[in-house]
Amino acid sequence: MKPTKAGFLLGVLLAMMPVVSHGQEYPTKPINILVTFAAGGTMDISTRALASKAEKFLGQPFVITNNGAGGGTVGLGIVAKERPDGYHLVAPTSSGFVRIPHFRPVAYKLEDFVPIMHFGAPQSGLVIRADSPWKSLKEFVEYAKLNPGKVTYGTLGVGSAMQHAMEYIAKKEGIRWTHVPYPGSAPALTALLGGHITAQSGDSTWIPHVKEGRLRLLAMHGDRRLKAFPEVPTLREQGYDFTNETVFMIAGPKGTPPAVVKKLDEALRRAMDDPAFLQAMAKLEIEPSYRNSEDTKKYLEEAYGRVGKLTAELKVPRDAEKKQ
């Protein structure tokens, strides 16, 4: 090679050297959040509302995608294996950590994650179509007792609190009904609206449809009644000793740098004060509820033990699917 050519080549190679400004702080690019339930459900709506308001504190947008398979365990399994660079986050419910692992094997552990914060406590309940003959939970349970295997109910996945609420009732009343898992509360709701399942045990995504008179709410799973439907009692009030306690949270894979966790935590917490976020939450009656990274971790560890004890007492079969 002639010297001129070599020189040219060298020049070209030098020109190839990327120009990077050093010391750029996280985040320098859009941050992905994988919501572990299908689009349109409460988890999805509230995460999107939160993320959209946190963007201005971080200077980078969030890119939100959904994977609702496996009752949220697929999304968690995916992000557990992601790069811990702060650009791959997951938005699960606490159920994925504290409840589901008690019932079936999952592809991840709590230790695979660094919780960043939790931001809301959803409400869930049992809804049926408004044209169904049953006016109350009691009538519904009576029918299910007399017609074993006839009633089908949808939830957002195997091992969810919503399934356990139903199995608790079934156990207590000696009912046999069939669980059909959907990838999120929105698809389960669609199935109920279409009459493909008898009931949905799901989070408050159904509020507008109950208001509009297409669906009927029979019972709430939480410890209080909904503001929108104060006439509908909770399960506990109807004699079933079951309370759904779940939080919506954001987490990153294990090894996400503490500085990044702190920055995200702060931005997300500040976003929780935004009126638009609060309004979106109020529409679905999700209570804003916050813990920081460490407290969320402690809470999850503690709740894991507590739910484990409760489920052992309930004697819900370990692999809830097997029984059907």
Partner: peptide, 10 residues
Amino acid sequence: VGLDIITGLP
């Protein structure tokens, strides 16, 4: 290929 859609296992 991937995690099973119902059980979430690989």
